[in-house]
């Protein structure tokens, strides 16, 4: 049986093609201004990579913020459900899934089979999401990649007063004017986001192992800040940005069988 999972993220659309539980291919396309068109393109790229015809895919399940806009889908599943399912498929020992994307953050308490026990969400405010780090890297005039790396060079804890990304930008600029080293500013920014994510996750309870998924898990500065904040090393699964799509494809498999 062949299934597909589409994760309609705010910045990128991700597709995973599964055949009998094995990943055949993955694809990623920028969401852009026409998500449905980008999704179609991403899906086509993925099936091509898998060497199958789109018509041969038995069930397509979408997830992500724009999941209802995905073309040709048979069903959809929430971001929370997909992240839980995808993560536990790869790491059964995980009991807490932290999913941080460009525009939202989630803390999910899961069982070994991927069943969601509880979850908390921070959305619609850039303060607790990847967009915060992105805005600060722009204010510092460094690329997002370098920005995450930079923070690992710092051992200094500078508190940030501003909570809002817009106000924090001015704070970062004043730190620059005060000759604060960029790596210390970078750590302060990552610590600020992490502390907001940590207090959100504490509301569902933190049980080991803890996994971080979503686009922000590629940022080593954030992984470090989060691990320090949680006082436990967080695990980052392979291809963490595809976890939602993988979870959706797994759910598609179940739904196709029933």
């Amino acid at each position: 049986m062949t299934t597909a999972g589409i994760d309609m993220g705010a910045k990128y659309i991700k597709v995973v093609i599964l055949k009998d539980g094995q990943v055949l291919s993955k694809a990623m396309v920028a969401t852009g201004f026409e998500p449905a068109v980008s999704a179609q393109k991403c899906l086509e790229e993925a099936v091509q990579g898998a060497g199958v015809e789109l018509s041969a895919v038995d069930h397509i399940t979408s997830t992500g913020a724009g999941r209802k806009a995905a073309p040709g889908i048979h069903s959809d599943i929430t971001d929370v459900g997909a992240a839980a399912r995808g993560t536990t498929h790869l790491h059964q020992e995980v009991r807490t899934v932290i999913d941080v994307g460009a525009e939202e953050g989630r803390g999910i308490k899961v069982e070994a089979d991927g069943k969601v026990v509880d979850f908390a969400v921070n959305e619609k405010c850039a303060a607790g999401a990847g967009a915060f780090a992105e805005a600060m890297s722009r204010a510092l005039e460094v690329s997002l990649e370098d920005f995450g790396q930079l923070s690992l060079k710092s051992e200094k804890t500078i508190p940030m007063n501003a909570q809002c990304a817009v106000f924090a930008e001015s704070e970062v600029v004043s730190l620059v004017h005060a000759k604060t080293p960029k790596h210390d500013i970078s750590r302060a920014v990552h610590d600020a986001i992490a502390s907001r994510i940590v207090s959100m996750v504490r509301r569902v309870g933190i049980n080991k192992e803890v996994a971080l998924v979503g686009g922000v898990s590629h940022n080593p500065g954030f992984v470090d800040a989060l691990s320090r904040g949680l006082e436990t090393q967080v695990l980052v699964p392979e291809n963490p940005e595809y976890i939602g799509a993988l979870g959706a494809a797994l759910v598609a498999e179940e739904r196709a069988k029933s």
């Binding site: 909570q163 207090s199 509301r203």
Partner: peptide, 15 residues
């Protein structure tokens, strides 16, 4: 004042 959502978090578990 700008962080009550987070500071009050421990007293407000999801369940």
């Amino acid at each position: 004042r700008k962080k009550v959502k987070y500071d009050c978090g421990p007293c407000k578990p999801v369940t």
